[in-house]
Each structure stands twice: as C-alpha cells, then as structure tokens.
Design a protein around this nucleic acid. Structure first.
Lengths: 137, 137
DNA sequence: TTGTAAATAGGAATGATTACGATTTTGTGA
DNA sequence: TCACAAAATCGTAATCATTCCTATTTACAA
C-alpha cells in the first residue's frame, strides 16, 4: 500500500481527501515501521502549530477500518503502519526505532488444526528485538 | 505455575507474603484466562470494600517481573494470567470470555533463520476468536 | 457559485495506569 | 515475646492515551 493507493481507496469509498488526510498518509509513507499517534501529532504540529486529537484519532481509525493502516498494541499505546497488502506475512519489530522486517512465516495453517470448533477471527505473530542499525548505533 | 509455586518464588526472593498478595494469586489461579486489572480490582473490592491502585499495579508488575504472571496488551488494556511454566507454547484467546487454549506450535525456530544480525528479545503468537463455550451461549 | 454533508477545532471527559507522602504490616533478631 | 526497620499498603492526585462533544470550517457535487 503506497500513498496513491491509499488516496484511491479514500476516493472510491466517498471520503474527502483533505490536506490533513494526505499529510497523515505521507507521514506513514515516509516511515517504514510502527509509529504511535504521538509521533503523528508531533509531525503535524510542526506543520500546523496545532492539531486536534479528534482529527488524529478519527483518521487513524478510518484508515485502519479501510485496511490502509495496520495496528498493533505496544506497551499501552496503539502503533500504526501502512498496510503491506501484497501478501500475508508478519513482522519483526525493532523496540528501539519501530522499524519492521517482514517475516514470511505464518504458523496459522498448522495451528488451526488444534482449534476445531473454535471461531478464529484474527491472529498476531510478532517478533521483538533490535535491528542491525540500532545494534550498531 | 500454581498458587504454591508462586508463593515459594515470593519467599525465595525475599518478598513478603501478605494477605493481598495471596488473594491476587488466588484470583488468577481461579481463572484460566487473561484478565485485566479491572477484574482484579472488582474481585478485591468485594472482599475488602476498597483497594489501592498502588497495591494492584505494584503487585501485577512484581509478579510479571518474577515470571509468575504473563502479560498481553489487548485493546489498550494490559491483561494477565498465571504463567504456564511447564513448556514453551502460545495461546488462543477468546475475545468474549478471555479463556485461553494452548497452541503447541512455535514458529520461532524457522523464523530466526530470516533474522540473522538481529537481536531477538521476545515474540508473541496469539490467535483471537471465540471458544466453543461462547459460541454455544 | 452555492448548499450540505463531512471534516476539523478546541477543549472537556474518560479510563487505565503511575506517582507519592502518610500509615500500617511483615518478618527478623534481640 | 517484643520492638524495629524495611517493605507493603492506603488514599488520592497526577499523568497519559484516547474518546466525546459542539461549534465552525471545508470539500465537492449540482
């Protein structure tokens, strides 16, 4: 999912493409890892001086509902990143910088065998640690 | 990890075994799923009328640090359960009742092959959905 | 260009969690 | 057993992320 894809999704669904909506997408396009709302707020305050929480969180939820952003709960804060829509995979997440690396292993195919009679709605497989760049810094 | 194991850990490490510490362990021993601090507060308020947040959270952190409780972040709330110390595994978590089922698959052995030069500190593999009991209710 | 539904502002409210000084309790060792 | 020091708890205030609300502004279709 890139910037233009995301804007197209917005338009297709009839949402308005405001300047701030584009700013938010650009922010996530320029990062390649999970970022908390806080970072987005700082980024937009640099540009606008002030930004409404409502704008931040409403759009984060909207993008998540539209599949534009992926979300994960890390230490009591929700973190977001642009969705990787090309194929199903999981992530290593650097706990220092938030950058991610794709992991092309999904254990669900074998795991479901242990879950007959269960309804499965979602799953999460994440690996935490420090990336090579942060290890060298 | 059962109640007695947990009390032994406390004593070995020189922590005092107060009535409330035992109450908290008994609460988790009587549940077999992830519970939020909120539920523990309600449980202890039923017995004592009032309970300090400090007592709740200090002990939850202590138990987590000692490996007595496992923790997971679910929708902005931290949830805890007694550690399953017998062997390494993961969980299906029922989003209705919080009960868990062990999943004896761990994808880490193959995943680490994709992560040379990365420092790996932790990982999470969780499956969310509804358990048979909640599906029938 | 204009009307209107959607989006944003600004700030109050909420909910989980943390922090802290005062008080109480536990376990130790005299 | 008793007294003491350290640890634990209390009660409450503060903090932090997030949600909610009403008034105002804006995008975009006609």
């Amino acid at each position: 999912m890139n910037l233009q894809d995301a804007i197209n999704v917005l338009k297709e669904k009839g949402y308005k493409t405001t300047g701030k909506r584009k700013d938010i997408l650009e922010f996530f396009a320029s990062e390649d890892g999970y970022r908390p709302a806080k970072d987005l707020i700082v980024h937009l305050e640099n540009k606008y001086g002030t930004i409404s929480f409502d704008t931040i969180y409403r759009n984060l939820h909207l993008y998540h509902d539209l599949g534009i952003l992926e979300k994960t709960d890390l230490e009591g804060e929700k973190h977001f990143r642009l969705s990787c829509s090309h194929h199903h995979h999981h992530h290593f997440i650097c706990t220092d910088c938030g950058k991610t690396k794709e992991i092309d292993i999904c254990p669900m195919d074998t795991a479901t065998a242990e879950l007959t009679n269960y309804e499965i709605d979602d799953h999460k497989f994440e690996i935490y640690g420090r990336c090579p760049a942060c290890l060298n810094a």
